[in-house]
Design a protein around this nucleic acid. Structure first.
Lengths: 154, 154
DNA sequence: TCAAAGTTCATGCGTTTGCATAGAAACCTA
DNA sequence: TAGGTTTCTATGCAAACGCATGAACTTTGA
């Protein structure tokens, strides 16, 4: 017997896409991004979240951008003094990315304001129980299945 | 005292972003799209869903793309014979978009395969109850809230 | 009724993106 | 350890994008 979740699954996915598009547009329209794009901020945010230096490939897994585009985005951030490329001592191919103090400060500035926007927009529609469910459910969708090879750090 | 859902709201939003990025990447990597991009397919899908002709501005509200970029995306689809521009008889500025039979057929082909992918990917992680909750919650986030009056300064 | 303001879509132009691929380092097998 | 394969990042180049603006049309208000 089929579970028949196909229709429901597609409806859920479409709803997620719509929610994503609506909110991203709303956030993008806000005046919180100083002189960088949301994608650039996303990179700063990811780096700020991790204490350890992050490799470009690792970043590539978290960001919706092709590897060459990400490489060039990093170029720009380096050129602006927000980021530094450091060779990975353990792997000559790899590149570690580290925020400069300036980059960290810019992330904080934007982050504070953006976090408020996010909270305002989302709590306007969802109660705490729904927030919690959404986080749980999207968490399940976000974690990469299969491909279990090595399980090293975060 | 505030309800303090700020942290939870931001966690939920980050989870939604991660889920979105993970799944979009996965779908994009699949060999489903024939000779068009996911954004182009998205436009065909939206047009196929509505029986009535859709105006570009209406489409713009549903798609995460600037208006000029959308206008040119439509150009390309028209040039490929998948779409037609029709003047809106009721508003000389407006443009109605209609799928050609070829465009409708292409949407169906891609859509069938893509819908299966979506169902496979999502039901692998979520049970029916979660699917339902996700659809409900994202539905709330997706619907554009009533545009309240702006309270900008004097 | 008509000029000013607003709306809708298209176009010019510089920037960013993706695809294909190159280059360098690590890995693997004999 | 050499040779082939795989992994990781960068670069050439054409396509696509966003911002600013233009052109055509509608709406508004005196």
């Amino acid at each position: 017997m089929k579970t028949g979740g196909t229709r429901l699954a597609n409806e859920a996915w479409e709803a997620l896409l719509s929610a994503h598009a609506r909110l991203v547009k709303q956030f993008a329209a806000e005046d919180t991004w100083h002189d960088l794009s949301m994608r650039e901020y996303d990179v700063l945010y990811t780096l700020a979240k991790n204490a350890q230096p992050v490799r470009i490939g690792e970043l590539h897994r978290r960001v919706l951008l092709s590897q060459p585009a990400l490489s060039r985005l990093v170029d720009r951030l380096v050129e602006r003094g927000l980021l530094r490329r450091l060779g990975d001592p353990a792997d000559g191919r790899g590149v570690h990315l580290v925020l400069t103090e300036s980059g960290r400060e810019k992330q904080r500035q934007i982050g504070r304001q953006h976090a408020r926007s996010v909270a305002r927009a989302i709590t306007a529609e969802l109660d705490p129980a729904e927030l919690h469910q959404l986080a749980i459910i999207c968490g399940k969708l976000a974690r990469r299945p299969a491909q279990d090879k090595e399980v090293s750090g975060p």
